[in-house]
């Protein structure tokens, strides 16, 4: 059973993704922002993080910086998710987080839930420990 941490303040996205992910294979945990997300990582290490960029209190970029500080022994694979349609904006985050586990990205508005789920599964297959 793989544990997926979704850090996002978009309740519709979180709920629909949670419902779409097969419950037999995946356990999902939800954090509203970066602060909550960091707390969850400390307590119970997930196998994959889906990280949104625009959140109140602590956004995605700040979360990546704080995660770097933690100096985890083994990196957790991260997928950046965003409503932003411009690749340039997302690529900034990818480049910034490449050294601590960012493996790819999801563009929410352009991708169907099944596409998103297959990408999650691919990433888990490739980078799981």
């Amino acid at each position: 059973m793989k544990k997926i941490l979704i850090i996002d303040d978009d309740e519709v996205f979180v709920k629909t993704l949670q419902d779409f992910l097969p419950k037999e294979k995946y356990e999902t945990v939800h954090a509203k922002d970066g602060v909550e997300g960091l707390g969850i990582i400390d307590k119970d290490r997930p196998n994959l993080i889906i990280l949104d960029l625009l959140m109140p209190r602590m956004g995605g970029m700040e979360f990546l910086d704080d995660l770097r500080e933690k100096k985890l022994e083994k990196e957790i694979p991260i997928l950046i998710s965003s409503q932003l349609s411009k690749i340039e904006d997302i690529s900034k985050a990818i480049v910034a987080g490449m050294d601590i586990g960012v493996k790819g990205y999801i563009i929410k508005a352009s991708e169907n839930l099944d596409m998103i789920v297959s990408e999650i599964e691919k990433t888990l297959e490739k980078y799981s420990a």
């Binding site: 629909t16 779409f20 409503q83 508005a109």
Partner: peptide, 21 residues
């Protein structure tokens, strides 16, 4: 775009027979 995408994703879930609500 955000709410619109949200409604679309909700439809995706509701359409999917495999997911029991």
């Amino acid at each position: 775009r955000s709410p619109l995408d949200g409604v679309k994703k909700i439809s995706e879930v509701l359409k999917n027979k495999k997911i029991t609500q």
